[in-house]
């Protein structure tokens, strides 16, 4: 496997880079969209059921189908990586919007009232109190989205998008296990890397969780 990697390192590194970008961008976009959306679903209760239902419906669309339908909707080419980014952003938002709404909702009423009583206004309370408390739950949702994104990106190899999935299609066409195993390994490592980074960021953002209760 190491030999195979050495011989094709340029190409594989390129695929790895693409893979990382195609997984990471949707995470970023997804979070940026899901945060306000989740807050809205919390703030205006009537929005919660439809938001959760739509999110659930978006989940049901198989990724390959979405990769293929998006070019028709976005007027992009089939091979355009934009399709992958948009599709995975859709999944990420679908996952995170409910997580964000529930996480904000799980902040205890006592804490909210205390914050209000101390004079926080709505926005200040959201940014300084509710969001920080919700960080661990949102981070858990992000970790799942990240790992699932890394796996989903490789599906796009079937329609020819250059990423680690190419190792699977190449290996399959040549009936050659080595590239497939290498692809699985790199993909898992990439997922682990994303997972660790998110955990680390969450840890830095929530120093109080490291305090040992005495």
């Amino acid at each position: 496997m190491i030999d195979y990697y050495r011989q094709n390192s340029d190409q594989i590194n390129g695929w790895l880079g693409w893979h990382a970008r195609l997984s990471a961008l949707p995470l970023l976009f997804g979070l940026l969209i899901a945060l306000p959306l989740g807050w809205l679903a919390r703030r205006y209760r009537w929005l919660y059921p439809p938001v959760v239902t739509v999110a659930g419906l978006l989940y049901t669309i198989p990724s390959l189908a979405l990769f293929i339908l998006l070019p028709g909707l976005l007027k992009t080419r089939i091979l355009d990586p934009t399709n992958v980014v948009v599709a995975l952003t859709v999944y990420t938002v679908a996952l995170l919007v409910r997580v964000v709404a529930d996480a904000l909702g799980s902040v205890s009423e006592d804490v909210l009232q205390a914050a209000t009583a101390m004079g926080y206004r709505r926005l200040g309370r959201l940014l300084k109190v509710e969001l920080p408390i919700a960080v661990p739950v949102i981070a858990a949702g992000l970790r799942v989205a990240a790992v699932s994104n890394v796996s989903l990106v490789s599906v796009a190899a079937l329609i020819g998008v250059p990423e680690l999935g190419q190792l699977f299609t190449n290996g399959f066409q040549l009936s050659y296990q080595t590239p497939i195993l290498l692809g699985i390994l790199l993909s898992v490592l990439l997922a682990l890397a994303f997972d660790s980074v998110i955990q680390l960021v969450a840890r830095v953002l929530t120093p109080w969780r490291r305090a040992v209760p005495r």
Binding site: V147, V150, S154, G165, T169, G171, F172, I180, L181, I184
Partner: peptide, 19 residues
Amino acid sequence: FRALPTVGLLTFFVILIAP
């Protein structure tokens, strides 16, 4: 299992078992 890429798993098992 969550971290395993589906396409990789599928192609791997086919090559491994089909012959």
